[in-house]
C-alpha cells in the first residue's frame, strides 16, 4: 500500500519534471527553427512558478472549484499510469479508466471557465468539446481494433505483448494505418496547430483560459503538463511498445512530442467546422479500414 502510494507520487513528480522540462526544450527547438535563440530550457518552470506567485482573481466558487477539480482529476489519472513497468495500482491500468478519468479533468476545466462568465470562454469550451467529439471517434475505433486483436485492454499487458520480439511486434509496424490515425488524433488532443481551434489566442483570446490569471493560471498550466504527459504516454504505450527502461521511454516520448510540435509550427489553424469535417472524413475512414483489417483479415494481430 505504502509503496503503491509512493510509486504514485514518484510518477507524478517524474511526469511534472519531465514534461515541463520537455516543454522548455521544445520552446528552444522551435526557437532554433525560427532562427531565434529561444528561451532557457527551464523557462517553463519559471513561467509556472511565476504564475503561482501572483495574486489571483476569483469569479465565484465554481471558478475556483473547477480549477481544483481539473488539476485533481488529472493528477489522479497520472497516478494510474504504468510508466516503465512501475504502477501505483497494479492491475488497474485498463485503457478505459484513462478515457473516463481524463474526462473528469477536462470537464472540471470546462465548468470552471464557463463559471467565469466570459463569452469567449464559453466559445472556447464549446469548441474544445466539439473537437473532442471529432478526435475521439477515430481514436476509439483504432484502439478497439487493438483491444480486439490482442484480447486485452490493460495497458501494461498491451505493452508486454508488443515487447515480445523487438520492433517487429510494435503496433506501429503491425498497424501502420491505425498509428497514423491515432497520431492525428493525438495532435487534436494536445491542441497542436492545425487543431488549435479552441485556444486560438488571436481569435478568441486563448479560449477557456481567457479569465485566468495568477494562481489559477499556474494550476491550469500544471494541469496542462499532466494532460500532455498522459496523452503522449498513452500513445507511446499503445503504439511504440511502451518501454522497459527509463531511457527508452524518454527517447520515445521525446520523438513523439517534438514531432507533434514541429508539425504544429509548420501548419496554420483550422476553423472548427473544418476540424470536424476533416476528422469525420479522412481519419475515420482510415480507422474503419484498419479495424476491418484487424477484425476480418486478422492482419496485425
Amino acid at each position: 500500500m505504502i509503496t503503491g502510494i509512493l510509486t504514485g507520487f514518484g510518477i507524478l513528480l517524474f511526469a511534472f519534471v519531465w514534461q515541463t522540462s520537455l516543454d522548455g526544450i521544445n520552446r528552444k527547438i522551435v526557437g532554433r527553427f525560427q532562427k531565434r535563440i529561444g528561451p532557457k530550457w527551464y523557462q517553463q518552470f519559471r513561467d509556472i512558478f511565476k504564475a503561482l506567485s501572483k495574486t489571483g482573481v476569483t469569479h465565484g466558487w465554481v471558478f475556483d472549484f473547477g480549477v481544483m477539480m481539473a488539476l485533481g482529476g488529472i493528477m489522479a489519472t497520472v497516478m494510474f499510469l504504468p510508466v516503465v513497468g512501475y504502477s501505483a495500482f497494479p492491475g488497474m491500468d485498463n485503457f478505459f479508466i484513462f478515457v473516463y478519468l481524463l474526462a473528469v479533468g477536462m470537464l472540471g476545466m470546462a465548468m470552471s471557465s464557463v463559471g467565469s462568465g466570459n463569452p469567449l470562454a464559453g466559445i472556447g469550451v464549446m469548441r474544445a468539446l466539439t473537437q473532442m467529439v471529432g478526435y475521439e471517434v477515430p481514436f476509439m475505433i483504432v484502439i478497439l481494433g487493438i483491444i480486439f486483436g490482442h484480447n486485452t485492454s490493460s495497458l501494461s499487458e498491451l505493452a508486454a505483448i508488443q515487447q515480445a520480439s523487438g520492433i517487429m511486434t510494435w503496433n506501429l509496424v503491425k498497424m501502420p494505418i491505425g498509428t497514423v490515425v491515432a497520431y492525428i488524433s493525438l495532435l487534436g488532443m494536445l491542441g497542436k496547430k492545425p487543431f488549435e481551434t479552441f485556444i486560438a489566442p488571436a481569435e478568441i483570446a486563448s479560449g477557456p483560459m481567457v479569465e485566468y490569471g495568477g494562481k489559477q493560471l499556474g494550476m491550469l498550466m500544471i494541469m496542462h503538463e499532466f494532460a500532455t504527459f498522459i496523452e503522449v504516454t498513452l500513445f507511446v504505450t499503445l503504439f511504440l511498445g511502451g518501454a522497459t527502461t527509463l531511457f527508452g521511454f524518454i527517447a520515445k516520448y521525446f520523438v513523439v512530442y517534438i514531432l507533434a510540435s514541429l508539425i504544429s509550427n509548420a501548419l496554420a489553424r483550422f476553423k472548427i467546422d473544418q476540424v470536424i469535417k476533416f476528422y469525420y472524413k479522412v481519419p475515420i475512414t482510415l480507422a474503419i479500414v484498419q479495424a476491418l483489417m484487424v477484425v476480418f483479415l486478422g492482419w496485425g494481430v
Binding site: 520552446r27 526557437g31 531565434r36 528561451p39 523557462q43 489566442p201 486563448s206 490569471g213 493560471l217
Partner: peptide, 22 residues
C-alpha cells in the same frame, strides 16, 4: 519579438488577455 532581437530569450512572450499578463 521575432528572430532579429528575440524577446523570448529574456523569458518574455505575448499573452492574449489582461488577466494573464504581467
Amino acid at each position: 519579438m521575432t528572430s532579429r532581437y528575440d524577446m523570448e530569450r529574456l523569458g518574455m512572450g505575448p499573452m492574449a488577455t489582461p488577466r494573464q499578463a504581467d
